[in-house]
Write a protein that binds this DNA or RNA. Structure first.
Lengths: 219, 219
DNA sequence: CAATTATTCTAGAAATCTATTGAATAATAG
DNA sequence: CTATTATTCAATAGATTTCTAGAATAATTG
């Protein structure tokens, strides 16, 4: 095999990985999977895709080596091949955020209050949690909480937040988190809590970013 | 705008970045650009694509925010938007190398001697260069060397290596480098030098990786 | 064993991507 | 001003992707 040929083949292989990630729905699926293992059915529901379509997208991700699966009973559970896939997703996010004006515009438009919601870094949360000063609030759906969450975090899915406000100590600051840096759940939660007069901030990044920093996870 | 809509749009923006990188030729162009600024013409020659085709690929990269360009005289020079694009390319490479069996197979097939060519890490090269123990050899084409190279490196493009062997001190170890971790130029150079009885190793990664570690570049 | 559930497979239409070709534009040189 | 050089634009054919819908498979339940 010639050098040019080798190089060409190699770059085509790299392109396969990028191609697998070149579709918005597949990136959403990867973000869901970054929260933990999920069945095809659950992923279809979460993404709003049809079952057959979800299955096909997952198979593309699998062929590119980004996810793996296992069969248990008559369900198939998919999972990320490794946390470096999550990290790759983060790199794409960062590059997009830095160089695509549309991303900035979108984030600004939707999260107008962005500046007033200055996020708290993982390191700071760790410290304040150690001192017992904060309530760590996971606002993702129950299934995602169950398959892994921040140590000591309590789970109140966003939709149920208003009904369970009494579970939160009104005198402690709340730090909310969800799936990732652009996940709106934590934004909305902080907004609602502040409306109720509580002190609330959101964590910078979500569970996947927390894991990538090598911080402990409870489940 | 609804939450679901926002999320969907956002992930589609991220997908644009991945889509721009989902083609082998475009990844090759990005690797060339990671060596330094280049004209469309030069990139067409290096990649083997036609001029029009090269121009179109570059425009796709530009629309995804990955590259920028400037006009000087009647030439247009393209450049990476930032080193984080180079870093993203590296992440894709890593994921592909780790999870795609085909990549391993390709690298093993072509670079059979891989194991005997254990690369020297940047940190070690720095140390040994400081002690004056090694000749740092850049085997990329002259243009790439000119637009930036390792401090103190001498340039002998691979094709001319045999003719210029006398420029190398036979008693000093040679460390060769080129464009990146899978660039064959340095592999071939090390092979040739060893055939001539010289002590030679290749640097782990190429110039872009060196820059990403924040190490100094000369030009 | 029949019915049910979860997933995958197959086929096809519409949309998108890629490479090629030749024409158009823009800057410079003569 | 004309010719030349470097790049982009526009049109097109062929290949690939994406989504849908219904059939097929595989494991479990009754």
């Amino acid at each position: 095999m010639s050098t040019a040929h080798f190089k060409h083949d190699l770059f085509n292989e790299f392109a396969r990985v990028a191609k697998a990630m070149s579709n918005g729905y597949r990136l959403e699926l990867l973000e869901f999977l970054a929260q933990g293992e999920r069945s095809v059915d659950a992923l279809a529901q979460a993404s709003g895709l049809t079952l057959a379509n979800t299955s096909q997208h997952l198979q593309q991700l699998k062929q590119a080596g980004l996810v793996g699966n296992r069969k248990e009973g008559h369900k198939v559970y998919y999972r990320l091949s490794g946390m470096d896939v999550s990290s790759l997703l983060g790199s794409i996010r960062d590059v997009a955020e830095r160089y695509l004006a549309d991303v900035d515009r979108l984030v600004d438009d939707y999260l107008k209050v962005k500046d007033s919601l200055e996020p708290i870094p993982a390191s700071e949360l760790l410290e304040r949690a150690r001192e017992g000063l904060v309530t760590v609030l996971d606002v993702r759906p129950v299934e995602e909480y169950v398959s892994g969450h921040l140590p000591g975090a309590i789970n109140i899915p966003l939709q149920e937040l208003e009904m369970h406000l009494d579970e939160l100590d009104p005198d402690r600051e709340v730090v909310a988190y969800c799936r990732g840096p652009h996940c709106v759940l934590a934004f909305d939660a902080v907004f609602k809590l502040r409306e109720r007069g509580m002190t609330a901030r959101r964590l910078e990044g979500g569970l996947p970013e927390w894991k990538l920093e090598g911080l402990p996870v409870e489940s």
